[in-house]
C-alpha cells in the first residue's frame, strides 16, 4: 500500500508540473511541431539533462533506498518499434496530447481529453488483439 501511495504522490507532482508548465495545452504541442514556439522542447531537454544528472548519482551509489541493486529498465527495439513510434507521433501531433499530458488535461477539466483518453485505451486494446495473432509486435 505504501508503494501505491508513493506512486499516487509522484503522479500528483508529475501532473501538477505538466499543467503548470503548459505541456497539457493543445497549443504547446501544435506550436512545437509547427515550429512557432519551442517551449516544450526546452521542457523535454531540461528534463532529460536533469534526469541524466540524477541517474549518475544513483549509479555512483549503485543501490536504491531499500538496499536493492539499481535496476534500470532498458527497452529494446523490436521489428516494428519505429513504425509504432511514427504512428504514435501522428497521434501526438493530431490530438495535441501524449499519454501523460492527456491525464493532466482531464484533471484540468478539458472535456474532450476524455475522448482522447478513451481512444488510448481502445488503441491499447487493439494492440492486445493484434498481439494475440502477431507475437512479434
Amino acid at each position: 500500500m505504501a508503494k501505491k501511495v508513493g506512486f499516487l504522490i509522484f503522479g500528483i507532482i508529475f501532473g501538477f508540473a505538466l499543467s503548470r508548465v503548459g505541456a497539457s495545452e493543445f497549443d504547446a504541442i501544435y506550436d512545437m511541431f509547427t515550429g512557432s514556439d519551442l517551449k516544450l522542447v526546452g521542457v523535454i531537454i531540461t528534463a532529460i539533462v536533469t534526469g541524466f544528472a540524477g541517474m549518475q548519482l544513483l549509479h555512483i551509489k549503485k543501490t536504491v533506498r531499500n538496499g536493492e541493486k539499481l535496476n534500470v529498465s532498458h527497452k529494446k527495439l523490436g521489428k516494428w518499434s519505429l513504425a509504432g513510434a511514427a504512428v504514435f507521433g501522428i497521434g501526438w501531433g493530431l490530438s495535441g496530447a501524449c499519454p501523460g499530458t492527456v491525464l493532466a488535461q482531464i484533471g484540468e477539466g478539458k472535456v474532450f481529453a476524455l475522448t482522447t483518453f478513451l481512444g488510448m485505451v481502445l488503441g491499447t486494446y487493439i494492440y492486445a488483439l493484434l498481439k494475440q495473432h502477431r507475437p512479434e509486435l
Binding site: G84, F88, W92, S95, A97, P99, T115, G119, T124
Partner: peptide, 19 residues
C-alpha cells in the same frame, strides 16, 4: 480526438513506450 487517442495507444505499445 478519439482517433488521435487510438493512434497514441496503439503506437506507444508497438514502440514500447511513450514520451
Amino acid at each position: 480526438f478519439l482517433a488521435g487517442g487510438v493512434l497514441l495507444g496503439l503506437g506507444s505499445r508497438i514502440a514500447g513506450g511513450c514520451t
